[in-house]
């Protein structure tokens, strides 16, 4: 997968961040408007795939030195931990809590434990999809 396309590479550098920011936005917006962990995760993966197509596998791995299998693990732990955390407060497994806060800068905001769970989903989706793509791409 060695390409030497200057236009693609230059565009990609900009577009990657746009897609990535959009993914983050969609992820956080998920609770109120369409979006969420799955879509956010997949969009992030899409951005990374674009990087992979424009540059080669080694370059991307150097720029983003994650082991995506570990990302899967962190995601699963986060999701399971959020779900199990409710046991500590003596409520059934998977009970979420939420409340409205007034934060400086953000103003009226509601914080939600479901968000943490969704973050777990996000990480697992990115981790799994990237594991699959990197493995296939790296298979000589």
């Amino acid at each position: 997968m060695r390409t030497n396309d200057v236009i693609l590479q230059t565009t990609t550098k900009v577009v990657f961040f746009i897609i990535f920011l959009f993914a983050i936005h969609i992820f956080f917006a998920g609770h109120y408007t369409p979006g969420g962990g799955f879509v956010g995760g997949l969009l992030t993966t899409g951005a990374l795939v674009l990087l992979l197509l424009a540059f080669d596998l080694k370059t991307v791995q150097k720029a983003l030195p994650f082991n995506f299998v570990i990302v899967i693990g962190i995601g699963l732990l986060l999701a399971l931990g959020t779900a199990a955390g409710s046991i500590l407060f003596n409520v059934p497994f998977f009970t979420h809590a939420f409340d409205d806060f007034t934060l400086p800068l953000f103003g009226e905001t509601s914080l939600h434990t479901a968000m943490l769970f969704d973050a777990g989903v996000y990480l697992v989706v990115v981790g799994s999809a990237m594991t699959i793509i990197q493995s296939i791409g790296g298979d000589a």
Partner: peptide
């Protein structure tokens, strides 16, 4: 369906490999 879409992605990738 949302769940199913993501699962089918995983399964398709698995089958492909």
């Amino acid at each position: 369906i949302l769940t199913a879409i993501v699962i089918s992605f995983g399964v398709t990738a698995f089958m492909l490999v």
